[in-house]
Amino acid sequence: MEVWIGTSTSWLAAAGEHGGKEHHGPGFWGLVFYIGLVLAILFGLMSFAKTGLKSRVFTKPTLFGLPVLGAFEQIYLFIEQLCVGTIGAHGRKYVVMIMVFWMLVFFSNLVALFFPTAPTADLSFNLGLALVSIGYVQWEGIKANGLFGHFRHFAGPKLGGMLILISLIIFVIEIISELMKNVSLSLRLYGNIDGGHRAADAMNELGKNIIPLGGDTGLSIPIGAFLMPIKLLTCVVQAMIFCLLTCVYLSLVTHHEDEHHEEGHGQPVPAGAH
C-alpha cells in the first residue's frame, strides 16, 4: 500500500489501477505533438469554414452533413451571449478572446475523447492557459482603470485611520486570490479531463478483470467507452466554465468603470469568485 502513495499519482488504486503506473502526462515533445494535433484540427476546420463566408446563410461548407460555418456561428453567438450576459453591454469587445479560449479548450477536450492524452489533460498546459487568461484579465483591468486604479481595486473599499491596516491585509489576500485563480482554473480543467481518462482506464481494467476475452493478449471489452457521453458533456461544460469564469473575472475587474450609469445591467457577479 505504501507503493502507490510513494511513487505514483494513482489515487484511483482502489478502482483497479495497479501501482507503479505513472501518470505524468505527455512529455515536452508529446505536448508539442498534441498541441499540433489540436491546432491542425482547429485550423483545418476554420479554413474549411472560411470558404462559405461569402454566402448569405451559413449552410454552405458541410462536413458529414453538418454545416461547419453554421456551427462556428452558433459558437460565436453563444459566446457573445455569455459575455454580454455576464459582463454587461461593454462585454462585446472581449468576445474574440473568449471565443478563442473556448475553441482551444473545447477542441483539446475533444482530442482527449479519442486519444490517450490531450493538451488539456496536462496540468502544465492548463496552467499556461490559466496564466494567459488571468494575465489577460489583469491587462484589461489595467486598461479600464489605469495601473493605479487597478491595484487600488485590490485593496477593497476606502477605509480611513487605523483601518488602513485592514486594507493592507485585504490587498495581500486579494493578491493571493488572484494567484489562486490560476490554480483553480488549471486544476479544474486538468482534474476533469484527466480524471475522465483515469475513470475510463479504471473501467477498462475492470472489464479486463471481469471478462478476460483474449487471455494474455490483453483483449477485453472496453467498458470505459460507455463513459463517452458523459465525457462529451464534460468537454462542453468544462470549456464553457473556463470561458464563463474568465468572463466573471473580467466583469469583476472592469465593473467599476460603468457602475454609475449602468446600474443593474447584466446579472449580478457571484461574490467571492476566485
Partner: peptide
Amino acid sequence: IGKLQVNMLIALAFVELVFLLTVFIVP
C-alpha cells in the same frame, strides 16, 4: 432558465473544485 443555468454551472464548478483539491492535496 438562462441565468439560472449559468449560475448553476458556476456553483457546480466551485463545488467540484473542492473535490479536486481534496484529491490533489490530501495524499
